[in-house]
Design a protein around this nucleic acid. Structure first.
Lengths: 233, 233
DNA sequence: TCTCCTTCTATTGTATACAATTGCTCTGCG
DNA sequence: CGCAGAGCAATTGTATACAATAGAAGGAGA
């Protein structure tokens, strides 16, 4: 099933994945995020090697990566299962993400240059075009949004942030509700990005950080409304 | 060489390590942090399997973990080397650690209970005793300090924080200069902990977070003085 | 019928052999 | 003398077989 999806849904990391452990990673990840995996579902390494089409050795590599991203969890007896997050953990994820992305924006503001601004404007142009119409193109929005944030991460020039943040961004809960975001939400995102670009252009790190924080926290708020309310109903 | 060291220097995670990949992890980690490894030094998986005394399979497991902690780095051609951090990266590490430990303290303040306070007081009693004398016992200080912060992390009740923070705490640069901290620094640390306990007892998350932030940032400042100045000389 | 123990099975962990890739050296040509 | 390419050596990546371990099932005794 992962082959049918647009590239947008894939991780930003590596577009070309030659090694078997990478294909295993992508396949298993898609299985969890967009496939028939369900939270709490038990899995075996052998089952996963069938899914990935490679032997257990590269699968174990991939599994360890996914454990680090907390998409998979191991029980005390080393058995694998798909992660199942509590509301508190999801809140926490957004809180951490807000902190780290704010920090990334602050650093990026200090290091931004003309080329970076041009690229940010270009990407956000695509994003704006995708949402500024009657029927928003959510797929394009998500892809452009990812590129925008990746660009900021790039200009933050912090290997450590680059390692920590991706595990917090594209997550099942986020993805599952992406289509529920209202057109207003999407348009506001584009405006946030415009303001971020302005802050970068001014090299004002506090401004950039503040915009980013509210950007993420508003996304969290929209997400909460979209899911928790419908769950309660 | 790792066998000669006190337990204090080991990672907090698992005291008993039965699996070969765990022993490999510990041995290689000690080799990097306290052994003859040098920043930038090239390594091969085979060399590491000699050091660890196990085959390459568990070594590769351990290596992946150490890559995540950024103690090991892979070049574009997949060759391994010991990480070599720039000053900017070290600054960044402290900044991130300060943010995350502050957040942990805030969460812990909301979730603290009598038992936790008692344990914190006990550990900090040991710590205070170790530093409140003419010749501070740095080893005991470090161990008690680690326990204290681990306890806070435990009460923060955030699996994600528990995964992210440890990779930021005990690092070569920190460890290498631990003995250079002045007696004043150590005593001030004990006082910070006392104030943290007070903030927890009051369940005042802002207070706890602020104390923690200044606690970490002072450590950073002491570290910078101890290293950068001597380097410059 | 419940509990404890034993046995068996499923699953994970490790070693080893081999494949694929990368870097290096040495040669031949310009 | 410099450089490009071929072959070789070193290193990483993958598959498979086997070992160790945890869970489950079944049976004996109270």
């Amino acid at each position: 099933m992962p082959d049918d999806l647009p590239n947008a849904v894939y991780s930003a990391n590596s577009l070309f994945m030659s090694r078997a452990s990478d294909t295993a990673y992508e396949k298993i990840r898609s299985f969890i995020l967009y496939g028939e995996a369900r939270p709490g579902m038990q899995l075996t390494e052998e089952r996963l090697s069938e899914i990935a089409g490679v032997s257990r050795t590269p699968v174990r590599d991939a599994v360890q990566r996914l454990e680090n991203e907390m998409l998979l969890v191991r029980s005390a007896s080393k058995r694998l299962s798909v992660a199942d997050w509590s509301d508190d953990e999801i809140d926490e994820m957004f809180a951490l993400r807000a902190m780290l992305e704010c920090h990334a924006a602050e650093r990026a503001a200090q290091r931004m240059d003309g080329g970076g601004l041009a690229r940010l404007r270009e990407v956000n142009g695509l994003l704006t075009a995708a949402v500024d119409r009657a029927m928003p193109d959510v797929g394009t929005f998500l892809e452009a949004n990812r590129q925008f944030h990746d660009l900021i991460l790039e200009y933050a020039q912090s290997p450590r942030l680059s390692k920590l943040l991706p595990a917090l961004v594209e997550q099942p809960v986020v993805r599952r509700t992406a289509n529920q975001y209202s057109g207003e939400d999407l348009i506001q995102s584009a405006k946030d990005h415009d303001e971020l670009i302005a802050a970068f252009a001014a090299r004002d790190q506090d401004w950039a950080g503040a915009v980013m924080t509210s950007h993420i926290r508003r996304a969290f708020h929209s997400f909460s409304l979209a899911t928790r309310d419908s769950d309660a109903a």
